[in-house]
Design a protein around this nucleic acid. Sequence first.
DNA 1: GCAAGGACTGAATGGTGGTTCACTTCTTGC
DNA 2: GCAAGAAGTGAACCACCATTCAGTCCTTGC
Lengths: 199, 199
Amino acid sequence: MAYRSTERVKARLSASRERIIAAALEIMAGHGYAGCSVAAVAERAGVATGTVYRHFPTKADLFAEVFRTASQREVDAVARAAAQRATAAAQMSAVVETFAGRALQSPRLAYALLAEPVDPAVDAERLTFRRAYADLIAGHVAAGVASGELPAQDPHLTATALVGALAEAMVGPLAAGVAGPGTIPDLIRFIHRALGVSP
Amino acid sequence: MAYRSTERVKARLSASRERIIAAALEIMAGHGYAGCSVAAVAERAGVATGTVYRHFPTKADLFAEVFRTASQREVDAVARAAAQRATAAAQMSAVVETFAGRALQSPRLAYALLAEPVDPAVDAERLTFRRAYADLIAGHVAAGVASGELPAQDPHLTATALVGALAEAMVGPLAAGVAGPGTIPDLIRFIHRALGVSP
DNA sequence: GCAAGGACTGAATGGTGGTTCACTTCTTGC
DNA sequence: GCAAGAAGTGAACCACCATTCAGTCCTTGC
């Protein structure tokens, strides 16, 4: 027993793991999932291809984690913005503004997270991303219904449909790189109507 | 000049082409796009793999046409159902009922058309599918706004968002194979609110 | 029947890119 | 310094599957 991994090594390993994830994210933001060969990720992270496999059993596992990380970051940002508002209507405005604003800031990444073709195993992670948004929105809707601000409705169905509406409405602008000036206010009006916010 | 293709041969060629498309559709309906290797399609159509390439330059071209055919069929069915109603509200009810009803009838095919990972070239065809739905809905919305049934709004944005809402709301039920009994009525209520249909 | 030329065949080809593994380099405890 | 064992390397491997093509069969006009 002449070797047992020590704290210093563990820290280096975990740093290396983080660097691989960060490299994958950077490539996604620059060239989409399509540009993310394992070799390219390894090179950008400054390690050999084989090293990637010391941290992740398969490419799909690596990207499941990449998607999870990126998604969590997005959902957290949206949740934080919404939490600073008082009414359901204002909360949903914050959701749309934050979601759309961040997506337009990194359109390639947003497209990869939302809609780009990926392996099925990674696609599954995308579902949890959308569900996380839906849960977040459902919470605000349920509170709005409870307080009487919104009419009676199934908060989960409403939230799911709104996530779809939001994502679909962003796909066009993401492809173009910018949204027309009226898009986001119009989208907010649409969503307020859909929630039953009284005018 | 001892051979020039005659009507009979042209008919056989076109029949063969149709059979290849039909075979691809059947495999999609059974095993999704993932099960659609060229060899599998050829076998089901009763031709050799090479023959597929006498009709389509690449696999992507074949599936672009398959998607176009299947999408057109869906959009036509929805358009027909909507055309039989008089008000925008009733037209949208028909859209939801027809879209959701048909999707639940062939969940695997619906999933492939809506959301399954496919090559980028085929993905482009999916966009036109969604745009066709959006255009259809936008027409009814614009008419509703013009007649005063619906409040002022950007019909195209509304329609795009509704397509997203509809698709997203169906993904869960499609995975499960059935929708809960309240899902479709609730979805119709949601969409009526979003349109601004007066209660 | 026959020559010309298209249609059909399906085994072989080739490109891609994820994954492996024999080898090298580094770390640890003594 | 040294042995034991882990981490790191990257060229080679391999599975998969779209695509090709040389050979065969079929259709046509005479």
